[in-house]
Design a protein around this nucleic acid. Structure first.
Length: 273
DNA sequence: ATGGCTTACAAAGTAAGA
């Protein structure tokens, strides 16, 4: 079977329900992992999402900020959520995907992350948020290394990781070296997470360097396509067992053109199970 | 020219994004 998984920092789920409906209709994803839902569980728009064709929904949100959710057409069950830096922010949700095509005994796990943005100044001595971002990544790496945590050989990790690791993941490597999201210390921390879980970068498998690849463009540009000052902040990673099952990845830039859209474009990945 | 915009909020200016 084909399994289509989208990841999208939607920047408020409630204000963009129509966009979500249009995106779902056009691309027919089986599963959508959302970040920055900015919505407590109490106000989560279950009915609208049910009508959109997502009978399985897991929201892990809070009022006003952060928040992750996973919507699905096929059964999913929670596999846990972690607070990796003690901030009590809702930034992680893992689910088991019950796809029913069990060629392997190991469960198929999807991790959805919203990693802290990290504030303005890339120095933990003057900017607490930057320290919290680095700590989140350090603790995440340790969590993946620790065999007492629930892991599977079949895992997919998606989300807004808020770091553009490669030189061609940003519009200007030189001009962004001191800008939070592309500083060398953040890149090191992200690579440590990648190594700890033996994660493979699916987006760069299909679009190798040095081809530029972005998923986020600032709201402030008059014409985001013309200036094209993008960054690849959103990612799709897989464990080695899942790497050859991925058949395509698309950054759906068309959505970034929509009226009052998110500053992140959705990323759509297809797997053959 | 990276902050020019965008969001949430027991609402008029803050906080936060990145």
């Amino acid at each position: 079977m084909d399994l289509k998984i989208a990841t999208w920092n939607i920047n408020s789920i409630r204000i963009r329900l129509d966009h979500l409906a249009n995106f779902s209709k056009e691309h027919q994803p089986d599963i959508i992992a959302l970040q920055e839902t900015k919505c407590s569980n109490e106000h989560f728009p279950h009915q609208a999402l049910e009508e959109m064709g997502f009978p399985y929904r897991i929201n892990h949100g809070e009022k006003a900020y952060n928040g992750v959710a996973i919507l699905s057409r096929i059964p999913i069950e929670t596999y846990g959520n972690e607070d990796f830096n003690g901030s009590q922010h809702t930034r992680h949700q893992a689910v088991e995907i019950k796809h029913g095509h069990t060629s392997s005994k190991a469960p198929l796990i999807l991790h959805n992350f919203y990693i802290p943005a990290g504030g303005d100044v890339p120095d933990r001595n003057v900017n607490l948020k930057f320290g919290q971002k680095l700590d989140y990544l350090t603790n995440l790496a340790n969590w993946f290394k620790d065999d007492t945590n629930p892991h599977s050989e079949n895992m997919i990790l998606v989300g807004d990781l808020n770091i553009a690791p490669l030189e061609t993941d940003v519009w200007s490597h030189k001009q962004l070296l001191k800008v939070v999201s592309h500083t060398p210390i953040e890149v090191e921390h992200l690579k440590a997470v990648q190594k700890a879980g033996n994660w493979h970068d699916v987006m760069r498998h299909f679009t190798p360097e040095p081809e530029p690849l972005y998923t986020w463009w600032s709201y402030r540009a008059k014409d985001w396509r013309a200036s094209n000052r993008g960054r690849r902040l959103d990612h799709v990673w897989v464990t080695p067992k899942m790497a050859d099952k991925a058949t395509s990845v698309e950054v759906v830039t068309k959505v970034r053109d929509w009226e009052k859209t998110s500053d992140h474009a959705p990323v759509l990945t297809t797997f053959k199970l």
